[in-house]
């Protein structure tokens, strides 16, 4: 298993945000997470990348348990790529600077080698001509593709996407989903919080419905979509269509 989560519980103060989460994600699996706003989807992803620490439960990444107090926590994060709803590109670095930041700073790869890899990655996301541009000059779709390239540069074992298209203008959603589809087809293990049902049905191996901090229901996306078992899932799906 690439990700194993056992009995995960997370509180923000008195607010119980994740409740007894058990989840396995296999290598090369693409898991799509859906659920209402505030149901804990982002927090779950952030716990897997240790941007948040759960108070109870265990998370194994590629079979290894992570000690959140470890001084090596950053090395675990390097193996788990994350793409954010609001891109979070580094505005003071060019597109290429963003993509090679992890290579030069974390992997300590020499600049010229990093640039070679950066060039390949930008070609992969279709932004070769934007290497020397600053993020502010890009459209939302382009920004998100740079963010994906930046995360991929670390050659992560897992990619987490937190609503990667929900702050994009509708006409820019497709280009980002296309890059994600390519990734999935190449065998990347992915967890994607997204309500893009077309994407979920096409590339998702499994869909998870979360409500109030619990995994209420999960299954093959087409199956879950057309034949939800729980009332809450039905109600939620009818809302988002």
């Amino acid at each position: 298993m690439m990700i194993e989560i056992r009995g995960l519980n997370k509180w923000f103060g008195d607010l119980h945000v994740l409740k007894d989460i058990d989840l396995d994600v296999a290598e090369q699996e693409v898991v799509v997470v859906i659920g209402a706003s505030g149901s804990g989807k982002s927090t779950l992803l952030r716990c897997i990348n240790f941007l948040e620490f759960a108070q109870k439960g265990k998370i194994y990444i590629d079979g290894r348990e992570t000690d959140v107090k470890s001084k090596k926590l950053h090395l675990v994060r390097a193996e788990v790529g994350m793409v954010f709803q609001h891109f979070n590109l580094f505005p003071h670095r060019t597109v290429m600077g963003n993509v090679i930041e992890g290579l030069t700073q974390v992997k300590k790869i020499p600049q010229n080698k990093a640039l070679e890899q950066g060039t390949e990655l930008l070609a992969k996301v279709g932004l070769s001509d934007k290497a020397d541009v600053y993020p502010a000059m890009l459209s939302g779709g382009q920004k998100q593709r740079v963010a994906i390239a930046r995360a991929l540069a670390m050659k992560p074992k897992i990619m987490l996407f937190d609503e990667p298209t929900s702050s994009l203008d509708p006409e820019l959603v497709g280009e980002v989903l296309q890059v994600m589809k390519t990734l999935a087809n190449e065998g990347m293990t992915m967890m994607v919080v997204s309500h893009e049902m077309g994407f979920a049905r096409e590339v998702g191996d499994r869909m998870i419905y979360m409500d109030e901090g619990r995994i209420v229901e999960q299954g093959e996306p087409k199956e879950l979509y057309s034949n939800p078992q729980h009332e809450r899932t039905k109600a939620f799906l009818s809302q988002i269509i």
């Binding site: 941007l51 090395l75 954010f84 580094f90 992890g102 700073q105 974390v106 930046r150």
Partner: peptide, 21 residues
């Protein structure tokens, strides 16, 4: 923005690197 630090951490930077870079 908090997301800047988080993006840096998610790349595998240490908290000190995220601050400095």
């Amino acid at each position: 923005e908090r997301g800047q630090r988080e993006a840096a951490l998610s790349l595998g930077m240490t908290p000190a690197q995220a601050m400095r870079r």
